[in-house]
Design a protein around this nucleic acid. Sequence first.
DNA 1: TCCTAAATCTGATTAATATCATATTTTAGG
DNA 2: CCTAAAATATGATATTAATCAGATTTAGGA
Lengths: 134, 134
Amino acid sequence: MKAVLFLALHTNDNQKWMVKDIYSRINVPQSYLAKILQELSKRDVISSSRGPKGGFYLSEANFDLPLIKIVDVIDGKQRLRSCMLSIKECDSDNPCALHDLVGNTNSEFIKRLEQTTILDLISDVKEGKSVLPL
Amino acid sequence: MKAVLFLALHTNDNQKWMVKDIYSRINVPQSYLAKILQELSKRDVISSSRGPKGGFYLSEANFDLPLIKIVDVIDGKQRLRSCMLSIKECDSDNPCALHDLVGNTNSEFIKRLEQTTILDLISDVKEGKSVLPL
DNA sequence: TCCTAAATCTGATTAATATCATATTTTAGG
DNA sequence: CCTAAAATATGATATTAATCAGATTTAGGA
């Protein structure tokens, strides 16, 4: 998430970012960042190009992706969506003891991740409404 | 959480529960359950007595504990309460890019964990409003 | 008082995740 | 077409969390 937001904030038409120039700026270990970015790239959350002048960046399409996409790619779709007591048959018809307590607030959270795009977030940052890492 | 809810539902004045009689009923590995219950007991979330006729159970006081206590003991207080981007200075005055998106829904979640007691949850179960494990 | 059944304590093992290292592929530029 | 710079792929190591095993303490009952 930090890496994507970093790219969102610093990508421009003629600049791509290499792992070695990002990791220290967002306090993430270099090798771990590399693996994460490669995964995100493979799953089309971010973009990349190889070779000299290459690096990671966000395409127009990437900017419009909802944040949930990042979460789903990194953590898997079930992480946010499965029963907190890991009960298989848990749903609104057959709610576990925690279903309602967790459910409302959790689905609200998911909804926000679905409705908010990367672009939305960095717009806030650029308008000074929020701040980013380091 | 599953174990505590199990105890809440099955504790009565003259019955205590041993690890070996619980673990298979809630689908949790025996050794792991033992360690968890011991930790919960040490931190006064649940009660226990040693020796023959001993076991784990909930005292009156335990029943009135808010769910947040379980989470805090097992996961540590920071787990639910620290910045999602792990930014040290992140707060409402200096919000990170995700602060508002996460914050509202997260503090609502925490509030519910603080306001709901173990007793509340199992009352629902006993009234048939929700179901429990297996 | 002794035996046994239980939790407790401690350290070891296993599994999962994070991190590292390095060889391979791709591509811009000479 | 060659070279160097970048991502990519793959496997190894390190760290953390989950699980196991066994020795120790406590308490009930004969």
